[in-house]
Amino acid sequence: MRVMVLTVPDCPNAPVVEERMTGSPTVLINGVDFFAVPGTPPSLSCRLYRESDGRADGAPSIADLREALNAADATADCECPPMDSAGRGGRGRLAPVAGGLRAVQQAVLRHFAATGAAPSAGDLHAVAATHGRTVIEALTDLAAEDFLTLDDHGSIRAAYPFSGAPTRHRVRLASGIEAWSMCAVDALGIPDMLGTDAVITSTDPVTGDTITVTSTQGRMPFLPRRTGRP
């Protein structure tokens, strides 16, 4: 039997699952998601699990994990994809220097920080050309290694921690620039990454309440403030 745990980068609920079983918010047993809700679309966001009493939790309960494991055929052959090496050789989300990938990745992130939006191919042409690459080549390589994601037209959809499309998590930087983040944890990381003050506004996925957090130079001295349903 193979148990695979899938999470978005720095997901805060991953350690919870690792404590409850050796392995996070999406748990695949022999390639099957036993906790999938029919009709739920894929999402790069934190996942919630409902307890028997209706409460939401960031990871499956011990009882639910045991039930899923018991339901799986432990003796069946598993045609699961090979596991990726953890931590990308210690680089995390930092792209390799070779092929100009890191330079293009940093240009993408700087554009998000300066404008709040994803750069176009024209915005990246000069830096890619400096390394003897086309923009399409560099972005394709970065997407293949999951340093960013592209839409069906090859345009940048997201570059961790930024999202090029609206999400529930909005970060207003001290410069006045507003950007979307991939998830709540990414939103909290943006001020620290840029070394700037920011006001983070998120929508609670369960209640719909608006939650505001003020970050000062990457630190968050104030408790989140709920402002009610938007």
Rank of each mutant, 00 (worst) to 15 (best):
A198Q: 05
A158E: 12
T201H: 04
D10L: 14
L139F: 03
T149V: 08
L188M: 14
P25W: 13
S85Y: 08
Q217Y: 04
A95W: 06
A158P: 06
T115Q: 07
L148D: 00
R47A: 08
T214R: 12
A129E: 13
I177V: 10
V32Y: 07
E137L: 01
R133Y: 05
L6T: 12
I200Q: 02
R102Q: 09
C183G: 05
T134V: 00
F112W: 06
G31S: 07
D53M: 07
Q105V: 09
T207H: 04
A121K: 08
S181N: 10
L142W: 07
F112M: 05
R66E: 12
M83W: 05
A68Q: 01
F35K: 09
P38D: 03
A143D: 04
R66L: 09
P82Y: 03
P205G: 02
H131T: 04
T203A: 07
E51S: 08
V37Q: 10
A14R: 15
S45W: 09
R2F: 00
D57E: 13
C78G: 14
T26H: 12
S155C: 11
D77A: 10
I200M: 02
A71V: 03
G100Y: 04
D10N: 14
A103K: 00
V37H: 09
A174M: 11
L69A: 06
D204P: 04
T214Q: 11
L94F: 12
D197E: 07
C80P: 07
G89K: 06
I200S: 00
F34V: 00
G154E: 04
L142P: 02
I211H: 03
L48W: 15
A113H: 05
P38E: 01
L44Y: 14
G100T: 00
P25I: 13
P119R: 03
S85W: 08
A165S: 13
A174G: 10
M1A: 08
S155L: 14
R2C: 00
V3S: 12
A118P: 01
S24Y: 13
A187Y: 03
S85D: 11
H169R: 05
L48Y: 10
D152A: 09
V206N: 13
V97H: 15
D209V: 00
D141G: 11
G90M: 06
D57G: 11
P205L: 11
P96R: 10
E178V: 15
T207F: 01
V199P: 04
R219S: 15
S24Q: 15
P15Q: 08
D33P: 08
A36E: 06
A68F: 02
R170V: 14
Y49K: 12
D192Y: 07
G99I: 04
A86H: 09
V3T: 08
V199G: 04
T216V: 11
F35N: 06
C80D: 13
S24I: 10
T149A: 13
E51I: 05
L124R: 03
V32M: 04
